[in-house]
Design a protein around this nucleic acid. Structure first.
Length: 521
RNA sequence: GGCCCCAUCGUCUAGAGGCCUAGGACAUCGGAUUUUCAGUCCGAGUACUGGGGUUCGAAUCCCCAUGGGGUCACCA
């Protein structure tokens, strides 16, 4: 019987959740769920003490939004608590002591300047740098003396330089390193705190992690970690290094540091522009505060977890040659490490959008209303407590908007239905073109208005019929009236079907708007 | 630069020796539908990095080259 699977994700409190990190977390989570195992969330906060809670919130929020629950970790606890590395010092301490006692690590008294010199020497000689084990050569007495004298030291793990270290990576296969090329890594700083590479090993072992699923950039850390596991007498976990996500139109890792460059990339420009359009309306800043590398960007824009999850799953993983749309359950059902693609995957906003669109279209009307309403209230277009008539209005608009609604905040593109007739603004260009410049438009509009006053019922099919008959009576083309009418009632040249728009507004409001436009010409 | 990883349409991918004159999806470009936009339907173009092997046969296996990337801290 094989041990039950335990995977983990170990973010550091950076103040936001990176979309690529989310995808890594998702893969680890999926493997746990697929196997009926356990998913652990552990916080790598060895360095920063300040504001950990605040810097963590966006991370928890992202997991919660996407519905990726963790079985052990912050908030829920678990048998291997605490799950904050900052609180696990004694564990690390004990492990260091043990290695020291067993001669598998040593105290290095060389000052940093000396190390830097060694390094330089190696560089000019075009040699691989290896730390000089001066302190190891010292007698035990001398070491003791120095320590007693309060001379600072770091603890280095002693690399067995005569050996090779290999792992069988679940996605990369057999990978091997020559230890004779590896410097002895520092595992404990002179101030007594331990380094990430060491804490991770201790934690993974103590938390009985069976599968270390993480981004490919950690592959280079792996030999050291494997060696430390060995030194500590731990069984080696299965490593699975998944490829990272690259920036659109690039072969480089998608990183938050490059946001300013990303802003101008043709693929992402639309996403940044959208942020600059929508977030201010919601009182959430703009693309400087929330951008497409952050998970929160998608949440705040009203993406569906299903869309994001589908997109993330398909980035570097596939079920087969043809399945594109997968629910989370489908992915859980079918996820295996061997189907992870080895090459890095470019982040494609368009494709993400298409997954999102698919899942949005699956949603029943009531859910679309419930999902859109918060955006309308946040933008102060409808009152906080939406009454029944507001809900009906929203439902009517969404019905008319149909699959133009891709993300919930798209509802804000149809403000014209939620603002008062007086507050509605006319886009100048179409107003000029369709009303002022089109000489016959005003006259036609006046005639049509009279008919609109009496037609019953005031619904889309009837209005449709009316306008078509009107066109025939007047001997004009439908384009001559329809565009002008659209501008008068919605202020815009594009939008939902014209007759839907009129029906949603109702007779009274439609006439008012026509009046207003006529007076404005 | 050392070490390591990777390599199929613009992008995400299918392909684990013959089913491949390489399939699907997104994007692109046509055409149809339509009051706008979106959508929908139909159609088109576009890829196995190169060179050597192995084999009756290679996108698939091996080697080399090239290209791309990651990583080289008392960061995580």
């Amino acid at each position: 019987m094989t041990k039950p699977v335990r995977t983990r994700f170990a973010p550091s409190p950076t103040g936001y959740m990176h979309i690529g990190g989310m995808r890594t977390a998702l893969f680890a989570w999926l493997w746990a769920r697929h196997t009926g195992g356990t998913f652990v969330l552990r916080i790598d906060d060895t360095d920063q003490e300040r504001n950990v809670e605040a810097a963590l919130n966006p991370i928890f929020r992202a997991f919660e939004w996407l519905g990726l629950t963790w079985d052990e970790g912050p908030q829920v606890g678990g048998p291997f608590a605490p799950y904050y590395q900052s609180q696990r010092g004694s564990l690390y301490q004990a492990a260091v002591e043990r290695l020291l006692a067993e001669g598998k690590a040593f105290k290095d008294f060389d000052p940093p300047e000396l190390i830097a010199e060694d390094r330089k020497l190696a560089e000019t000689a075009k040699r691989t740098y290896l730390n000089v084990r001066r302190s190891l050569e010292m007698s035990a007495e001398e070491r003791q003396q120095r320590e007693a004298a309060g001379q600072p030291f770091v603890v280095r793990f002693l690399i067995p330089r005569d050996q090779k270290i290999a792992i069988d990576d679940a996605v990369r296969g057999h990978v091997e390193w020559d230890c004779s090329l590896m410097p002895d890594p520092v595992i404990m700083r002179s101030n007594g705190s331990v380094l990430y590479n060491f804490a991770t090993v201790v934690d993974d072992a103590q938390m009985q992690i069976t599968h270390v699923i993480r981004a490919e950039e950690h592959l280079a850390n792996t030999p050291v970690q494997a060696l430390i596991h060995q030194g500590l007498g731990n069984p080696l976990p299965v490593f699975a290094h998944i490829p990272f996500i690259t920036a659109p139109g690039s072969t480089k890792k998608l990183s938050k540091r490059d946001v300013e460059k990303l802003r101008t990339s043709p693929q992402l420009k639309k996403m940044f522009d959208r942020a600059d359009d929508i977030f201010p309306q919601l009182g959430l800043g703009d693309s400087k505060t929330l951008n497409p590398v952050m998970v929160e960007y998608y949440e705040r824009l009203g993406y569906l977890p299903a869309g994001i999850l589908n997109g993330l799953s398909r980035l570097g993983w596939s079920l087969d040659g043809s399945t594109e749309f997968l629910s989370l359950d489908d992915v859980i059902q079918n996820f295996t490490l061997e189907r992870i693609v080895k090459a890095s995957a470019g982040f494609d906003p368009e494709k993400l959008q298409s997954y999102q669109q698919h899942w949005m279209n699956q949603l029943p009307l009531a859910d679309k209303v419930t999902g859109s309403l918060p955006f309308l209230t946040q933008a102060k277009l409808v009152p906080d407590e939406a009454d029944e008539s507001t809900r009906t209005l929203v439902a009517n608009v969404i019905t008319a908007v149909a699959d133009r609604l891709r993300v919930f905040s798209d509802i804000l593109d149809y403000k014209e239905f939620f603002v008062s007739d007086e507050a509605m603004t006319f886009d100048e260009k179409p107003f000029q073109q369709r009303l002022r410049d089109a000489t016959e438009a005003v006259g036609l509009l006046k005639t049509l208005r009279d008919q609109l006053e009496t037609v019953t019922p005031f619904d889309a099919p009837t209005l449709d019929k009316l306008v078509h008959e009107f066109v025939e009576q007047q001997g004009i083309k439908i384009g001559q009236i329809v565009h002008a009418l659209r501008v008068t009632v919605t202020g815009k040249s594009v939008g939902v079907g014209l007759f839907d728009a009129l029906a949603i507004l109702g007779r009274e409001r439609s006439l008012k708007r026509i009046e207003r436009a006529l007076n404005r010409v």
